[in-house]
Amino acid sequence: MDWSVIAESLPLFGRAFVVTLRLSAISIVLATVLGLVMALFREYRVPVLSQISAAVEELFRNTPLLIQLFFMYYGLPSIGVRLSAELCAVLGMSILGAAYMSGAFRGGFGGIPHVQTESARALGLSVPQMIRYVTLPQGLTRSVPAIAANAIFIVKETSVFTVIAVPELTNTARDLIGMYYHTNEYLLELVVAYAIILIPLSLVLTLLERRVRRASFRSA
């Protein structure tokens, strides 16, 4: 192991680390918001939007992210739509993540006792009021474990961005290995960089899940 090689490449990995972290954070936020909206459309069976949400969820969950990125980056320019590599990465990951997040939210919503929604209707609550006072408070807490797993999945899947030349961690490691052949050193930096992102994220999400579980138990 040549530590001088690692020291020399640290600035490049530092920049790639920032890119990976930024794209991951944006994708997680967009996927969570979009997934929640899609889940609500399907939960309340909103005409047209419910069917569109179901179609998007099925399409993106059942096709590889690699193919989706290829289509957006290399296929769309043939019809005059040109997107930057980073925008394609964020769009692809956000929509894929939203498809999984929608499933997570719907699983949480499905755990709400049916009698509560019936009681809300009997009290004359409107749909927005039902969402605010019944669906979201209980559904979100039940969805936390699945949401946490999906967030970690999104971070790990950023490695696929290398196929459209986004300068993230995996792409940087691959380029350096191809130029200088110091495989062990660059792979070590790659593993450490992902661990720096994923381990704290996993710990934070685990603590959040425990807090939510305790709060649910006390309220019960």
Rank of each mutant, 00 (worst) to 15 (best):
Y194F: 11
E185I: 01
R82M: 13
S24G: 11
Q51M: 14
Y100I: 01
F105S: 05
L188Y: 07
V19K: 06
R82T: 11
A25L: 14
Y74R: 12
S27C: 05
A122V: 11
A146M: 03
L59G: 10
F17S: 00
L40F: 00
A55Q: 09
L40D: 04
Y180T: 09
R45C: 12
S219C: 12
V33C: 07
T158Y: 01
G108S: 02
T63E: 06
L207S: 14
V160M: 10
G107E: 02
V191C: 11
A16C: 09
W3K: 12
P137G: 07
L10K: 04
A122R: 06
Y180M: 13
Q51R: 15
L190W: 06
S202W: 01
V5P: 02
L10G: 11
M1T: 11
N171M: 10
L66A: 13
C88D: 03
M72W: 10
L176R: 04
A173H: 01
R132I: 10
L12Q: 09
E168N: 02
T183S: 12
S4G: 10
A39R: 02
D2S: 09
M179C: 15
S102D: 08
A122Q: 05
A31C: 04
A173Y: 00
S4K: 12
I95S: 06
L188E: 02
V166Q: 03
A215F: 09
L49V: 07
Q68R: 02
Y100Q: 00
L36E: 06
M93A: 05
V33S: 04
V46E: 06
S53M: 05
P167R: 00
Y180A: 15
V81N: 11
Y186F: 06
A104N: 04
I6G: 11
L65S: 05
A39W: 00
R174N: 15
E43T: 12
I26V: 08
L203E: 08
E57H: 07
M101G: 05
A122P: 02
F60M: 08
I112M: 11
F153C: 04
L69Y: 06
K156H: 05
